[in-house]
């Protein structure tokens, strides 16, 4: 019983960060119709940037975010403007392959700079533990959860009640009309992609404490993000956060309760089942 509770709590906390990963993807997909297969490699890049700041200046990853976010935003804007935009609107396959190419570039760029050995960027709070009843809560997980939800709410409010947010939603819903109302659709697309990548810089720092990192891990994050993204019905913010928690909990329960293989397979089984039987995602509008 305690084990179950522990799994639920841990799954919830880690899952909220997964939700944050998928929010970035959902935002970009809604505005540009692009599924970015380099998503996880951007997360990886965010982590290695933190690692670089740690080795060079002994900065805590939570502090490095101040620098990594602007760097990643600028990078996202450049990638969209010069690589994705020229082929946006063409076949989906083209865009997927282009982002796979970008994934190779990031992953192996990291490999060349940092080497292939697993490494870590420690944070001061990573060994902090709290005991609530019989449940152990890791400080890093708590931070990840709180920041993820805060950021999700911030993004939501930004989308709902600022001019920029309305412009983003307008491009999502009716790009032609948005352009006729003076919204620079191209700029909104660059901007959302850049924001999406910037969010990943934060998510990277949240997932980093206690996690050994390796350049080849990007695909794994991409896949987790895709699972959550599909589970959440692709654009619905609340559903995406919920999807993150479902995947996080499924992962945690899977590793504790089932034989090793089935536990690892569980998130994918859920994903395939959702894809087939509820392609509109877990939550649907009435």
């Amino acid at each position: 019983m305690d084990e179950l509770l522990q799994a639920l709590v841990q799954g919830f906390f880690v899952g909220s960060a997964y939700g944050l990963l998928a929010l970035g993807m959902g935002l970009v997909y809604g505005v540009s119709g692009i599924v970015n297969f380099a998503h996880g490699d951007f997360v990886s890049l965010g982590m290695y940037l933190c690692f670089a700041f740690f080795t060079a200046f002994a900065l805590d990853p939570y502090v490095s975010v101040v620098f990594t976010v602007p760097i990643m935003i600028a990078l996202g804007a450049l990638v969209y403007r010069f690589l994705i935009k020229p082929i946006a609107g063409r076949q989906l396959l083209m865009v997927i392959q282009l982002t796979l190419g970008v994934a190779l570039l990031i992953q192996n760029g990291l490999m060349m700079v940092f080497g292939g050995q697993p490494t870590r960027a420690p944070s001061m709070i990573e060994s902090k533990l709290f005991l609530v009843g019989d449940v152990v809560i890791r400080g890093a997980h708590l931070v990840a959860c709180v920041v993820s939800f805060a950021l999700a709410i911030l993004l939501y409010v930004m989308l709902q009640s600022t001019d920029t947010g309305r412009a983003i939603r307008a491009v999502q819903q009716e790009p032609r009309a948005a352009a006729l109302m003076g919204v620079d659709v191209g700029r909104v697309q660059v901007m959302t992609f850049a924001i999406g990548v910037g969010v990943l810089a934060i998510a990277a720092a949240l997932l980093l404490p206690g996690l050994p990192i390796q350049p080849t891990q990007g695909l794994r994050f991409t896949v987790i993000t895709l699972l959550v993204f599909v589970l959440g019905g692709m654009t619905n913010f609340v559903a995406i956060m919920l999807g993150g928690i479902v995947i996080g909990v499924a992962e945690a329960i899977g590793t504790i309760y089932m034989t090793h293989t089935l536990g690892q397979l569980l998130p994918y089984l859920i994903f395939v089942a959702i894809m087939l039987f509820r392609p509109q995602g877990l939550v649907w509008r009435s």
Partner: peptide
């Protein structure tokens, strides 16, 4: 004011 109105349906 475009043909077919093109309002933003979810707003």
């Amino acid at each position: 004011v475009p043909e077919g109105r093109l309002v933003f349906p979810q707003m």
